[in-house]
Every structure is written in C-alpha cells, then in structure tokens.
C-alpha cells in the first residue's frame, strides 16, 4: 500500500483504471440484471420476487464491504499516516451509504410480497439501518472536520469504532431468532439452486467494479481539490 503513498503514482494507475471499472461494471451489471429478470426461473416458495435478490444481495455485501474499507483506511491513517488513506475513506463513504440504502429499500420491497410486511424490527434489518446511520454520521463528521486532503482523526476513530457493527450484521441472523433468513451462501454451503444462483456472482462483480470506479472518481476529485487549495495557498503566500 505504501507504493501508493505518492498521489502522482496513485493517479497514474487510477486514471486508466477508472473507465475500465466504470464501463466494465456497467456492462456486467446490465448482463446480471437482465439475466435475473428474464433468464432465471421463479423460486418455489418466493415466486417471482426472488429476482430482487440480484440487486439486494450485492448491495448488502457492498454496504458492509464499504464500511470495512473505511475501517481499514482509518487504521492505515492512524497507524501508518498513509497520505491517501483519509482520502480513500472519505471517497468510500457516499457509495457505501448508497448501497446500504439500496439494500434496505429493496429488502423492504421484497419483504412486502414475501413476508407480508414492509419492515420488521429484527436483528438484521435493524443493524443494517444502524449501518446507514453510521455512514451518514461519518460523512457529516469527515466533511466537518477534515481539510480536503488531510484526514480527520475524529472521523478515523469513528470509522474504526463503527466497524463493530459489521460482525453484528453478519451474525445477527444466528444470534437472534429473526424473520430474516440465515445466510444462504457461506464458504462451506449454498442453499440456492444453481439455476437461480448463476447471475448473482456476475451481479456481485459488476456492482463491485462500479463501486470501485465511483470510489476512484471521488478520490480523484478530492485530490484535484487538494491540489487547487495548495496552489492557491502558495500563490497567496508568494
């Protein structure tokens, strides 16, 4: 990671990578969503509403992955004082919040025909809602306490402490007897029929590439704004 400590070196990689992630992610996402809509069969119990899984599950994974990224970047900022760590954490926050919100909304839409309710205060749904509130608080805190490129220690500590919610989300369906089903896919088991499952990995890769592309774009914007501020300050001092 320290090879990216020089922003110019980072930009040399980020500039060509951004369109690849953006367009590649858009194409894979389109393939996955169209396949999910038209090429997979309805599920035996859920019926047609199982198709919402192709947008809900990748959003949930990226909402949690986004905060994990913030926590790792915060650790790098606090321990190693990596110059790009705070920029990366700030860039991840908004797409992370968006994916968390999409997960909550699409889950609620799926819940109405499947469970008969839009919302239930169960462990998984509530801990995911807490994650959205954490993202909103982080965005406000980082925006209020950081200069453009410099990091905010308060936001970094908040990013680390907030990571405690990630295992709570993950294990909420095991710790509490909730309406939300337990994990269908783990490292050792899969309870989804392959005829329904196959578009899901494509959606996960597509969504992840889009997420990466958005993060790179936001990092490039933050770094450009930092260059403007530094240049204007030097001109004012001269």
């Amino acid at each position: 990671m320290h090879i990216f400590a020089n922003p110019n070196r980072f930009l040399g990689i980020a500039r060509p990578l951004t369109p690849w992630l953006g367009w590649g992610g858009a194409v894979l996402t389109a393939i996955a969503l169209l396949s999910g809509l038209f090429l997979t069969p309805p599920e035996q119990l859920q019926g047609e509403s199982v198709r919402i899984m192709y947008v809900h599950v990748p959003s949930a994974w990226l909402g949690m992955g986004g905060w994990t990224g913030i926590a790792v970047a915060s650790l790098m900022q606090l321990v190693w004082r990596h110059p790009l760590a705070a920029v990366a954490a700030r860039a991840v926050a908004l797409p992370g919040a968006l994916f968390t919100a999409i997960c909550l909304v699409t889950g609620s839409i799926w819940g109405r025909p499947t469970w008969g309710t839009w919302w239930e205060w169960d462990g998984r749904l509530t801990s995911m809602l807490v994650l959205l509130f954490l993202y909103i608080a982080y965005i406000a805190l980082a925006g209020a306490t950081a200069d453009r490129a410099g990091g905010s220690r308060v936001a970094a500590i908040f990013g680390l402490v907030g990571a405690i919610n990630i295992p709570i989300i993950k294990y909420s369906v095991d710790w509490w007897n909730t309406l939300h089903q337990t994990a269908s896919i783990t490292l050792t088991k899969n309870t989804i029929d392959p005829s329904i499952l196959w578009p899901l990995p494509i959606a996960l890769i597509g969504f992840s590439m889009l997420f990466g592309g958005i993060v790179l774009m936001r990092m490039r914007a933050l770094l450009a704004e930092a260059r403007i501020e530094a240049r204007l300050k030097r001109m004012a001092d001269a």
């Binding site: 969503l33 198709r51 919402i52 809900h56 109405r112 889009l210």
Partner: peptide, 14 residues
C-alpha cells in the same frame, strides 16, 4: 410491480 420498483430504484441510484 415490486420487482420493477426494486430494479428502478437500484439503477437510478447507481
């Protein structure tokens, strides 16, 4: 209608 709403919100957001 639920499926279309979920996909539309996701695509619009992204």
């Amino acid at each position: 209608p639920f499926i279309i709403a979920a996909y539309a919100i996701t695509i619009a957001g992204l």
